[in-house]
Amino acid sequence: MVPVPKLTRAEVAQATRNPLQFIAERWTPSHRIVRRAAMSAIVMAVVIVVTGGAVRLTGSGLGCPTWPKCTDDSLTATSEMGLHGAIEFGNRMLTYVLCAAVGWAIIALRSAVPWRRSLTRLGWLQFWIVMGNAVLGGIVVLVGLNPYTVAAHFLLSTALITVAVLTWYRIDEGDAEPKPLVGKAVSQLTWLLVVATGLLVAVGTVVTGAGRHAGDSSDVHRIPVDWKLVSQLHADLAWIVVALSVALWFVLKAVDAPAVPRRRAGQLFLVLLAQGVIGYVQYFLDTPEILVGLHMLGSCLVWIAVLRVLLSLRERPAAPDTAVPGPAAQELPEHAPAA
């Protein structure tokens, strides 16, 4: 049995005042560990979207009819609540797993050498998005699965995925000013693709809010628009995104762009192709639950693929003269604020 070292009174006070700095002074994660920690946050951000979709698709949205407790008298689901209660409560518990993943990422980013404040801030931004979405999730339950709050819940999850992907990507970059790898016209075309994809995702939430999967077995208010009409708009936007992705790939090839952006543009097209097939099949089969769930997963993967294309069009070399030293190497004043 390994003996646990005893902490002095000063060390206990330091750990209480600034636990992240305390950990950073005693543990230096490898680059691989930092990347894995950031990747775990991305994976859990996608998982929570998919499991949230499973809650809605199984009609378990009000399996726990109140929040933050599952019932007025119980913090957890009870046997009388059946499968719907277990599914909804299980999804709530996954939020803690997501918090753990984001927390691990924050600790790893704070303990890395050299320590980069910009990365730590991105980690904390993920944490606050998770907290905000948890509160919004409670509001969704309290207002009886109002479709507008459900849509906002999904869009905030997409924001979390965005920050998580950016954090993961920035680990291999420096903090110097980014240098574009392509011309302005190519960059503008890429941003047009990003905006069109964002609109595609947003309209997709309207399709969901107007569709038949309300999230509960009882009657739940739906967004008062023609479902077929908004589905057609969603499909039109999908074709625009596909056309832009194909155009971007040809342009990158024509201007002899680096291999990485061309490869990621090709990967984006394949993801879009798979997502489009799922979308059309679910439409003609009257939106079966399993295909809707796969389409939600595909939405996350499409957005991640678009972000990877955008981020690959630049390079951000490290600047050794401006790198921030690790916490263990700094001579911080006694009452220095935590990052």
Score class of each variant (00 low, 15 high):
259 A>Y: 02
31 H>N: 06
145 L>R: 06
321 D>A: 13
239 W>S: 04
208 T>I: 01
172 D>G: 15
94 L>V: 10
284 F>E: 14
232 Q>K: 12
185 A>W: 01
96 Y>Q: 01
202 A>M: 08
197 T>D: 10
99 C>Q: 06
181 L>R: 14
273 L>Q: 08
59 G>D: 09
286 D>W: 09
310 L>V: 07
44 M>I: 01
298 G>F: 12
209 G>E: 11
284 F>A: 09
275 Q>T: 11
4 V>D: 07
20 L>C: 04
129 I>M: 02
153 H>F: 09
144 G>S: 09
260 V>P: 00
324 V>W: 12
204 G>Y: 12
271 V>Q: 12
159 A>S: 14
283 Y>R: 14
168 W>L: 06
67 W>S: 05
269 F>N: 13
281 V>F: 11
43 V>H: 07
213 H>F: 13
191 W>Y: 09
80 E>M: 07
68 P>H: 06
193 L>S: 02
28 T>A: 07
116 R>Y: 06
248 L>T: 07
108 A>S: 10
85 G>C: 09
77 A>W: 09
263 R>S: 13
333 P>C: 02
37 A>S: 14
210 A>F: 12
102 V>Y: 00
260 V>L: 13
74 S>A: 15
30 S>F: 01
325 P>M: 05
192 L>A: 12
75 L>K: 05
208 T>V: 12
184 K>W: 08
71 T>G: 06
304 I>G: 04
76 T>R: 11
30 S>K: 03
139 I>L: 15
319 A>I: 02
255 V>C: 14
36 R>F: 15
293 G>P: 00
293 G>S: 14
287 T>N: 09
216 D>L: 02
105 A>R: 00
90 G>K: 03
15 A>T: 03
97 V>C: 07
33 I>A: 14
43 V>M: 07
131 M>V: 15
137 G>I: 04
279 G>R: 10
287 T>K: 11
143 V>Y: 13
84 H>L: 11
6 K>F: 02
156 L>P: 01
191 W>E: 05
249 W>T: 10
14 Q>N: 00
176 A>I: 05
318 A>L: 05
279 G>C: 09
295 H>L: 08
